[in-house]
Write a protein that binds this DNA or RNA. Structure first.
Length: 203
DNA sequence: CACTAGATTTTCT
DNA sequence: GAAAATCTAGTGG
């Protein structure tokens, strides 16, 4: 019984979707035999013209084109000369209002051995605890940019779960503008998130 | 544990 | 030509 999240799930503001996707299951189909999966434990919201930290802030370009399209598609970009980042497109209101959520961390559950090969480490909390790590572990690159993640057989999709997660929020990570907005959501007290907020660090 | 520097290349100014 | 929604290895306490 497939429980793939439908387009309706993504057809909301990036803030709402980023919060609701915590605890859902990310599924990556490499082939009929190789399935990777894990629970999404961290995500950030990005908006369009009203969010200076968003790639869509200055309008549509060749890179961010997917952000301006239909919700429920993957937006994958390359950064820092080495890393890919996985995003899901959420609701947009006008041509110039794009939005998406950045998937920042996953708690691995299926295909852990393959992820360990991709990442060249066996430490579970270092397999997908960051946007770049996650893409390396799950074999995600720009060839997946634009794919429809609501199709039950899509190479990337998200399945519903009945798990209830406590969600914390903080400032977004790695940006230089709009740092005051607390648009990062993560599973409370979960060791697979990329970074704990300052007050909670040091045990 | 906390902090810093360097890698490396796409993208946009 | 500069900056980037990052990661790792290295240093110091």
């Amino acid at each position: 019984m497939s429980s793939v999240l439908t387009r309706e799930f993504y057809n909301k503001s990036s803030l709402a979707v980023a919060r609701k996707i915590i605890g859902k299951k990310l599924v990556r189909k490499l082939s009929d035999d190789a399935i990777l999966a894990g629970i999404i434990v961290e995500a950030e919201a990005y908006a369009g013209r009203r969010d200076p930290a968003s790639h869509a802030y200055r309008g549509m370009t060749a890179r961010n084109e997917v952000m301006f399209g239909e919700p429920g598609h993957a937006y994958v970009y390359f950064t820092y000369g080495a890393h890919y980042c996985l995003n899901f497109v959420t609701r947009h209101f006008k041509t110039e209002e794009a939005s998406a959520i950045l998937i920042r961390a996953v708690e691995p559950s299926t295909g852990i051995e393959i992820m360990a090969e991709h990442r060249k480490t066996n430490l579970a909390t270092n397999l997908a605890s960051g946007p770049g790590k996650l893409c390396q572990a799950f074999g995600i690159d720009r060839s997946l940019n634009g794919v429809d993640i609501t199709h039950p057989e899509s190479p990337i999709r998200v399945e519903d779960t009945s798990e209830i997660y406590s969600v914390s929020k903080s400032e977004r990570i790695g940006i230089s503008v709009a740092k005051d907005r607390k648009w990062r959501f993560f599973a409370s007290n979960n060791p697979h998130v990329s970074k704990l907020p300052r007050p909670l660090r040091q045990g």
